[in-house]
């Protein structure tokens, strides 16, 4: 059987919010080491890769590998019924066609359970090559969200240029053009607010705004976001989930015809 418990429901609510914009349904692959999810958006432009380690759960048991296909809109209906500080337990029998979400209030006086039908989803698993990226930028997640939101007013695409000096985000369209430059921060005392750039080679890439904006739904998970870029390959936008795992979004670049 499979059983995974988190002492607060909030983190799974945030994880779900971070993926349900891009994905209508997804398969949660459960094993002894934890829960993995890999899925492309409908248009096959981006890929979501979620990893939740078994040791990050307050209780975790998975006797046999289990693939649970879930409709994320239905899962969201259920997660909406949990208070942030409720204990959450996900449970499924081996070879089951349902999963149960149980929520327990802090004082244990309210216990709710919701059973959801699982789906058989066609799984396309993509191999993500190990790559050394030419530029890796770490910056405040809120700042990245703000930049994506602001620039999407001006065009459908964002150009990201990274050099040793800093990272520049640009957009242009009928209304005009916009450029936001962030320099590497000089002080190291506030790690959460820092902008750090590790550059092997300068990179300039163009990406669709709407996907970047969807990725920023993960902002509540983490103070910092990491952007990894190399010429002519997908961007990686990574949010770490403290003590539990990470969510990585891969976005195919736009290329000049």
């Amino acid at each position: 059987m499979f059983e995974a418990r988190l002492n607060t429901s909030q983190v799974l609510k945030k994880v779900l919010d971070a993926i349900k914009d891009l994905l209508n349904e997804a398969t949660f692959d459960c094993s002894d080491s934890g829960i993995q999810l890999q899925a492309m958006d409908n248009s096959h432009v981006s890929l979501v890769s979620l990893s939740l380690r078994s040791d990050g759960f307050d209780k975790y048991r998975c006797d046999r590998n289990l693939s649970m296909g879930m409709n994320l809109a239905n899962m969201a209906k259920i997660m909406k019924c949990a208070n942030n500080d409720d204990t959450l337990t996900m449970k499924a029998q081996d070879n089951a066609d349902t999963v149960t979400f149980m929520f327990e209030s802090q004082n244990q006086e309210k216990v709710s359970d919701y059973e959801m039908k699982l789906m058989n989803l066609d799984q396309e698993h993509l191999g993500i090559p190990e790559t050394d990226y030419a530029c890796v930028v770490r910056m405040p997640a809120m700042e990245f969200a703000r930049i994506c939101r602001d620039l999407s007013q001006f065009g459908e695409s964002v150009v990201i240029s990274c050099t040793k000096e800093g990272v520049k985000f640009s957009a242009s369209g009928d209304a005009g053009s916009a450029n936001i430059k962030l320099a590497q921060t000089s002080t190291v005392d506030k790690e959460d607010e820092s902008v750090v750039i590790e550059m092997q080679e300068p990179v300039t890439l163009t990406f669709a705004c709407r996907y970047l904006n969807s990725f920023t739904k993960a902002t509540p998970l983490c103070n910092q976001v990491q952007l990894s870029m190399s010429a002519d390959v997908p961007l990686v936008v990574e949010y770490r989930i403290p003590d539990l795992g990470h969510i990585r979004y891969y976005l195919a670049p736009k290329i000049e015809d």
Binding site: M40, H125, L126, G127, P129, V233, Y250, A252, K254, I255
Partner: peptide
């Protein structure tokens, strides 16, 4: 003048 590529162009199907 920019064309959107697909993620499957970069990552092989396993």
């Amino acid at each position: 003048k920019h064309r959107q590529t697909a993620i499957t162009n970069f990552f092989p199907n396993q």
